[in-house]
Amino acid sequence: MGHARPRIVFFGSGEFGLPTLQWLAANADAYDTALIVSQPARPAGRRRKVRDTPIAQWAADTGLPVITPANVNDPEVLGRIHAVGADIFVVIAFGQKLGQPLLADTFAINLHASLLPKYRGAAPINRAMMNGDDHTGLTVITLADRMDAGLILGNLSTAIQPHETAGELHDRLAAHGPELVRQVLERHGLDQLEPRSQDESAVTTAPKLRKEEGTVDFDEDSKLVRARIHGLNPWPGCTVRCIDPGDDTAEMILKIGRVADLPDSTTLVGPGTLLESNRIACRTGCVALREVQAPGGRMMTLDAFLQGHDLDQYLQLVPLTSD
């Protein structure tokens, strides 16, 4: 390395990278975080108010140098970054691809929220959960021309908890980021890294979630129904229709935030049937409602919801369709 304290440029935009950035800044005796690069401010939230990214906001509040270029590979931006004389680039949920002229010969790592080569792409946490995986994790890789295809430098595995939502798993994995990045940086400093190629035959992808995916079909095993509901929380959420097939006027839109799966429960009714104790029949087993939200309301426990709403008038829960 070129400096006594490795000089770092941190590239990040989303909240996922914030714990690692905070750890780097807190360890200024070991690492010199010389520049932070984030995406430009954009409209966000229901009111579409223009907001800085979580990374840019934290950097500004902390007084660390930050730039927010629309194109990180623009020659002027490239010159600004190269002028720092960085030893290391740390990239986490940045949102732009770093071109070869920018990377040059700099040691550059990326923290990805899956056990690569599984779930390359924009939504690895959601997709792992929605597919019913029991484990996921983090991987630190080198940067490559293809998305998330770099050499593996380190990884960390963790169990996906049955009660956990994608939002909660996101935060838990983010909190593990600093430790894995620390291990990789220390091994790099000692010239002890052993990069290994990804198994291309085991690659799976994690495409960005679409709003229209935000529903569930109960004609699945209860574990997969629970996994999908939790994997869609917090966005786009899992919305269904509560209906009575014999009464066209009986309908309510309901967003389901959390359930418990009861795989050993047996029923003789069709999937989606609303059972006693606010359970819902699945192809095998059933799920019990735990947190729900009515249109225009907030997510709340089922007990709180039932104080102002009646589910007994409905017989079935069906997927929300676009038509």
Rank of each mutant, 00 (worst) to 15 (best):
F107G: 07
C286K: 10
K255N: 10
A44K: 15
D145Q: 14
D221K: 05
V184E: 12
E186I: 11
S277Y: 13
D32L: 10
R187Y: 02
A149P: 00
V90K: 01
L64D: 01
P124Y: 01
E220C: 12
A206N: 01
A108K: 01
S277F: 13
D87E: 05
M130Q: 12
A175H: 08
M252Q: 13
F89L: 03
H309K: 10
A104N: 10
L315I: 04
V181G: 03
P43M: 06
V259A: 08
E276Q: 11
G17S: 05
A281Q: 15
A166W: 03
A41M: 03
T142C: 01
A202P: 06
L224I: 09
W235Q: 14
D323R: 14
Q22G: 04
R80I: 02
G2H: 14
T165G: 07
R210S: 13
T267H: 15
S38C: 04
S277H: 15
A123P: 00
T139V: 02
R283T: 08
S13A: 09
R241G: 01
L98R: 00
I280R: 03
V37N: 06
E194I: 06
V72F: 08
L306G: 07
V259M: 07
F107T: 04
G99L: 15
D248N: 13
I152W: 00
E76P: 00
D134A: 14
L115W: 01
R228K: 15
T142R: 05
G154V: 04
R187D: 15
G154W: 00
R196A: 15
A60M: 11
S322G: 12
H170L: 09
P19C: 09
P207Y: 08
S197W: 09
T142S: 11
T62R: 14
M300P: 05
P162H: 02
N131R: 11
M300A: 12
L224E: 00
V203P: 03
M1A: 11
F218L: 03
I280C: 09
D105I: 10
D303G: 02
N27A: 11
S13R: 04
G137Y: 05
T142E: 05
L153M: 09
P54D: 04
E213V: 11
V203T: 07
V84D: 04
S265V: 15
N278F: 13
A281M: 07
M300D: 10
N73D: 12
T158Q: 13
V184K: 06
T301P: 00
P43W: 04
D32G: 07
A60E: 15
L111D: 06
R279K: 14
G95T: 08
D248G: 07
T33A: 05
A104T: 06
I109F: 03
P319R: 09
A281S: 14
L275V: 08
L173R: 05
N27V: 07
A60K: 15
G99C: 12
G270C: 08
L224T: 02
